[in-house]
């Protein structure tokens, strides 16, 4: 079974469409969207509808903190994110809102756990950035494989025999074998707002049969996405960062 792992789309339609076109060539049996479909970007309606269509044809879709914030006013967010969220609430329709609010926080399939932020208190949206973060996440579940997003920085952690974690930055185009007797924590990079210095959309394919993680980067028309953000009157920083992947 090959699963395409997409996360942190953030209302970036250009990035999402380019990524799905790339996914279509990867012979995947399933698509999983790990949340944060909206927020920051200028196309929340289009992106939500694309993901609703994916869900209707069998994709697994989880809720992220921005998806949750559509229905909640007290979200713990920075000023740019709050401004974008206020705007997003205004453009989303009732059906979109119902879809986003109804998404689950986690999904478990065998020894695989999918979650937006981290396995420990997933509703409090922890960040998995460091080996220590990954250790806490491992400690909260018996799943052998944990896949999450939320940080917008691709990473891979593995639990060592002495219960500490080693960290690794996956490189697009270099598949990583995930030994079957080990526990692995995959942090998938962001489709719509990468923050690791690379402007291309990030996603990954997890081949459960072979035990291999295939990290991918997909170039997309980020000037067009940035222009839409500016046209919508959203904070300029949300537009300019797309060109630098920051």
């Amino acid at each position: 079974m090959r699963i395409a792992l997409l996360t942190d789309i953030h209302a970036n339609r250009e990035a999402l469409e380019a990524t799905l076109a790339h996914v279509a060539r990867q012979q995947v049996g399933r698509i999983a969207v790990l949340g944060d479909i909206v927020g920051y970007g200028a196309d929340p309606v289009a992106c939500t509808e694309i993901v609703m269509d994916l869900a209707a044809s069998g994709a697994l879709v989880l809720q992220g903190n921005h998806d949750e914030a559509v229905a909640r006013d007290d979200a713990d967010m920075n000023a740019d994110a709050l401004a974008a969220m206020a705007w997003t609430r205004g453009v989303l329709g009732e059906a979109h809102r119902r879809f986003l609010a109804g998404l689950p926080l986690t999904a478990r399939e065998g020894d695989l756990l999918l979650v937006h932020a981290g396995a420990r208190n997933p509703g409090q949206w922890p960040y998995v950035m460091t080996p220590r973060d990954a250790e806490l996440s491992f400690g909260a579940t018996d799943a052998r494989l944990i896949v999450c997003g939320h940080t917008h920085v691709p990473a891979l952690f593995s639990l060592q025999p002495n219960r500490t974690c080693v960290a690794f930055t996956p490189v697009a185009g270099s598949p990583v074998p995930l030994a079957a007797h080990r526990r692995w924590h995959v942090v998938v990079g962001s489709v719509g707002q990468p923050r690791d210095g690379i402007a291309a959309a990030a996603y990954a394919v997890l081949d459960l049969g072979q035990g291999v993680l295939e990290p991918h980067r997909v170039p997309y028309d980020h000037p067009a996405a940035a222009a839409k953000i500016r046209a919508a009157g959203l904070p300029d920083r949300l537009a300019s960062r797309l060109a630098h992947g920051r």
């Binding site: 593995s158 500490t164 974690c165 080693v166 960290a167 690794f168 270099s174 990583v176």
Partner: peptide
Amino acid sequence: RRLPDLLAEE
């Protein structure tokens, strides 16, 4: 150099 170094940190 393109795979995790399991011997690195521990």
